[in-house]
């Protein structure tokens, strides 16, 4: 049974934190930060705003964009939600006015929203309209521990993105997807609220540089789609240099990759859906097929390809 993407939503906090704002604190220059990761600024929310608050705002934006009223299931991906239970999903459901709707927490950073989309594409036959949200308050993660680590302090931002996936026909039909994990690398990018975020950047970049092109090729090959026919690559915005490298490996122009990391930083599991929401807003009549892909802590990675039924014939 087919699954369809109906539309996206996003929410970014208003507070802009520039490279100049953090340069002195980490002993680097603003130019060094931009050269290292392609980020010029990021958004950090106010302390009283929660992951669930960010998720609700993105969900409301998605619902407004689509005009959808019925929600059959909610999936909230976040690697920065506070520990303990219940997670933010039920709070999101309550604040959206659907307290009795099943709500699933997906405690996954980075690739969380991609995994949520794939889960939704399988579950929508039973639950019909599924709202998948990626929401992150990475600024609170950065406050755990001692002196700021320049390698992580420069990267992360706050925000949330959302997508509605349904069994009802919609804008894009989900054609295929692939998910992978390799627990051997689980300690190479980790965070537990007791000590600072740990990131082995060399290993992350090295693994992502190989695995992202491979998983994208995996789903495209199964669907007999060549990379140059893909209209847009909507990726987890981990690192601009990494995404440019993935484009080069796939043999497609950088212009096919929607990039917004320069203004929002890496918003972990939220970033792919924020990028999708902005891309959809700036492309009222978008081409297809489109590819979603993410790689991150776990390591978890995957890709999903969706196409316009009419365009694909």
């Amino acid at each position: 049974m087919p699954a369809y993407i109906h539309g996206f939503g996003a929410h970014l906090p208003a507070r802009i934190v520039t490279n100049t704002d953090i340069a002195d604190r980490i002993g680097k220059t603003a130019d060094w930060i931009e050269k290292a990761c392609g980020i010029r600024e990021r958004r950090w929310t106010e302390p009283e705003i929660s992951v669930a608050d960010l998720a609700v705002a993105a969900a409301q934006n998605c619902i407004e964009n689509i005009g959808q009223q019925e929600i059959g299931l909610i999936i909230v991906a976040s690697g920065s939600a506070p520990g303990g239970f219940p997670g933010p999903a039920t709070e999101v459901a309550l604040k959206l006015g659907c307290a009795a709707v099943p709500a699933i927490d997906l405690p996954m950073a980075s690739a969380g929203s991609l995994f949520g989309m794939v889960m939704a594409s399988q579950m929508c036959q039973q639950y019909r309209d599924i709202l998948v949200i990626g929401a992150e308050k990475m600024s609170s993660v950065l406050q755990v521990g001692g002196a700021p680590d320049p390698n992580t302090e420069i990267l992360f931002g706050d925000g949330a993105g959302a997508v509605l996936i349904s069994s009802r026909p919609g804008r894009w039909r989900i054609l295929d997807s692939a998910l992978h994990s390799d627990a051997i690398f689980r300690d190479r990018l980790s965070f537990d609220w007791h000590s600072p975020l740990k990131m082995d950047g060399l290993t992350v970049i090295l693994q992502a540089s190989r695995k992202l092109p491979a998983v994208i090729e995996e789903v495209l090959t199964r669907q007999n789609i060549v990379t140059t026919d893909v209209a847009a690559f909507l990726m987890h915005q981990a690192n601009q240099n990494l995404l440019i490298r993935v484009a080069k490996t796939l043999g497609v122009g950088e212009d096919r990759f929607y990039l917004n990391i320069a203004k929002y930083g890496n918003t972990s599991s939220a970033s792919m859906l924020i990028a999708a929401a902005e891309w959809a807003e700036s492309n009222p009549h978008p081409s297809s097929p489109i590819v979603f892909a993410a790689f991150g802590a776990g390591f978890h990675w995957g890709a999903l390809v969706a196409g316009d039924d009419t365009a694909l014939g």
Partner: peptide, 9 residues
């Protein structure tokens, strides 16, 4: 650097 390593491999 980290981005030269994948090409080197």
């Amino acid at each position: 650097d980290s981005f030269a390593l994948p090409d080197l491999i």
